[in-house]
Design a protein around this nucleic acid. Structure first.
Length: 224
DNA sequence: GTCCAGGGTTCGT
DNA sequence: ACGAACCATGGA
């Protein structure tokens, strides 16, 4: 079992996921903040509210009062915190000249820039880098730790950066081409999430099969 | 009612 | 570097 063989198995089973579902890169960035500790269905409601009120653009969002923004994103939970985080992000995003300017930044500089925004941590930044800026970064989330520690490929308590480097280097050896790496990292993270979501749902009595926190271990025998 | 979500980010120590 | 505290909705 290797990092790449797990990817192949997931891809064969679930197919291409075409992440991230959004109309624009900015919508991806907003979604990345809103989905922090939140079910995606709730994020969709919040994004629909933003769209209906024409606030799903950096300039409009930046000038929307926090109270108003919080009201719109209420379904996504933590609305006061997230309203502030979104405004922090918009302020930085506009100051840097939006995506057109940021597209010219080096991967590492862009990552540091995103992380400098209060409310954007490593995972949120990497979601944005991978799915809005098409940079070759591997997103590490709770599911990723759980899956690969259960498969015995990692310990599980490694630091975020250590795991990110491990995945990027190991998978990068298979695929040196930057475009191919982006595609691989894009699909891989999406597949891990889909696996976590759907595998359990199909098994109402599931007590050991998936990546959700209530399952004590992970079975992949359906596809490995 | 309880548990969980595409739980992470910040801020102490 | 690590752990605690913080935030708050909606669906199963």
């Amino acid at each position: 079992m290797t990092f790449y063989s797990v990817y192949k198995a997931l891809f064969e089973h679930f197919g291409s996921q075409h992440w991230w579902p959004a109309d624009t890169p900015f919508e991806v960035m907003v979604g990345a903040v809103l989905t922090q500790n939140t079910a995606w269905t709730n994020v969709e409601k919040a994004i629909a509210n933003l769209k209906e009120n024409d606030v799903l653009q950096a300039a409009a969002m930046a000038r929307t009062p926090s109270e108003e923004l919080a009201r719109l994103i209420r379904p996504a939970g933590y609305f006061n915190v997230k309203a502030k985080r979104l405004k922090n992000f918009c302020q930085w995003y506009l100051a840097q000249g939006e995506k057109q300017s940021l597209a010219q930044w080096r991967d590492h500089e862009l990552r540091e820039g995103l992380l400098s925004v209060n409310g954007v941590g490593p995972e949120t930044a990497d979601d944005m880098l991978l799915y809005a800026f098409n940079r070759p970064v591997f997103v590490i989330d709770a599911y990723t730790r759980r899956l690969f520690s259960r498969l015995g490929l990692i310990n599980g308590d490694e630091a975020y950066e250590e795991l990110r480097r491990l995945f990027e280097q190991t998978l990068g050896e298979q695929n040196q081409d930057r475009k191919a790496q982006i595609k691989l990292f894009n699909e891989y993270h999406a597949l891990i999430v889909i696996h976590a979501k759907d595998y359990c749902r199909k098994r109402p009595q599931c007590d050991e099969c998936c990546l959700r926190s209530h399952c004590p271990q992970t079975e992949m025998k359906d596809y490995v």
